[in-house]
């Protein structure tokens, strides 16, 4: 299916969740409400005409000016050979979104990474811990307003 077909199909079945969509350009995607993400993800995975069985990546983008964090889920279908992306926008002060690790198990570590570096909290995630940084690290390093630490367990940051 072409991106415009996918968008039309998605709007037909999940009209209340899809906020907007971009069909042309280098990155066709649909912007989805945070509440409807789990339903849309399950629909993309299980619908026989879509069959998006592989989650390639979850990207979190910090927008301090717009005061939100954007999450982009890149999915492809290995059997049907088409690709698409869905985006979710969450509040920057309290970023919460439903986990999609029940739909795509690969999402588990991607979500841990987004939690670690951006501080997005994924609800109903089986094991939401830091994956890259130490457990007692202060803050989330890839936020635009992140301040470098002064000292970590006796090691100076700038000796």
């Amino acid at each position: 299916m072409t991106p415009s077909d996918i968008i039309a199909f998605l709007q037909q079945h999940h009209a209340e969740s899809v906020v907007s969509a971009v069909a042309d350009g280098p990155y066709p995607h649909a912007l989805v409400k945070a509440e409807g993400l789990a339903a849309v993800a399950a629909f993309l995975k299980t619908q026989p005409r879509l069959r998006f069985d592989l989650l390639r990546c979850i990207s979190a983008i910090d927008w301090p000016a717009k005061n939100n964090i954007e999450l982009a889920y890149d999915v492809i279908s290995t059997s049907l050979g088409h690709a698409f992306a869905i985006k979710v926008v969450v509040d920057r002060a309290d970023p919460r979104v439903e986990s999609v690790s029940t739909v795509w198990p690969a999402a588990e570590w991607h979500e841990r990474e987004a939690f670690d570096l951006m501080g997005v909290e994924f609800l109903h995630h089986p094991d939401l811990r830091r994956i890259l940084m130490p457990e007692d690290w202060p803050g989330h390093p890839l936020r635009k307003d992140y301040q470098d630490i002064v000292e970590y367990r006796g090691l100076k940051f700038n000796p």
Binding site: L132, M133, P141, Y146, D148, I149, L155, K156, F157, N158, P159
Partner: peptide, 10 residues
């Protein structure tokens, strides 16, 4: 943001 600036600190 995560690198020790010189292993001679450790």
């Amino acid at each position: 943001y995560h690198v020790v600036k010189g292993v001679d600190q450790v």
